[in-house]
């Protein structure tokens, strides 16, 4: 865990890396999330100040996009596609079995902090559904056994 000074230094570095961009807020938020696994609360006013935005504006942006988390996720992130092409191949059934196996619903994290289950709407794997993404790795024609990959 970083102390607040380290956190602020690291965020300042990220801001400096992106400040020359036109419209740098999303790249900065992506980089902050990549560094910390979520957008830590103190990052919001710091980014706002650096970009001459208000903290409300940054907060509004963070909460608009489903990729940005305000709290850390579980150790593994399991994303299952819920979109039509995957539905046509039984995605709902697979999701139901996975939810039952993990004992959680969408957007929830298992009690042991191991897995966070997220819906995703299309991974572009529509001709080999149901599709999933396990910690960034793509899985086509997935079934409930995909859970085994995150049981470590």
């Amino acid at each position: 865990m970083l102390d607040s000074a380290d956190l602020s230094d690291r965020i300042a570095e990220i801001i400096a890396d992106h400040q020359g961009l036109e419209g740098p807020l999303l790249p900065i938020l992506h980089a902050v999330q990549a560094a910390f696994g979520h957008i830590p609360q103190p990052a919001v006013p710091q980014i706002a100040n650096a970009l001459t935005l208000s903290k409300a504006e940054v907060h509004g942006v963070v909460t608009f996009y489903h990729d940005f988390r305000e709290a850390p996720a579980g150790r593994h992130i399991l994303k299952l596609c819920r979109a039509e092409a995957c539905q046509a191949m039984g995605a709902d059934r697979v999701a139901g079995a996975i939810k039952a196996a993990l004992g959680i619903d969408w957007h929830e994290t298992t009690a042991d902090g191991r897995v966070t289950l997220e819906p995703v709407f299309c991974l572009g794997l529509c001709a080999c559904g149901p599709a999933a993404m396990v910690d960034g790795r793509l899985v086509g024609r997935c079934d409930a056994s995909v859970v085994l990959e995150v049981s470590a």
Binding site: V44, S54, K55, A56, T63
Partner: peptide, 15 residues
């Protein structure tokens, strides 16, 4: 700002 999106959109005082 407006916080969240869709039906969850709410006026927010910043955090």
């Amino acid at each position: 700002t407006i916080e969240g999106r869709g039906f969850d959109s709410r006026v927010s005082f910043g955090a």
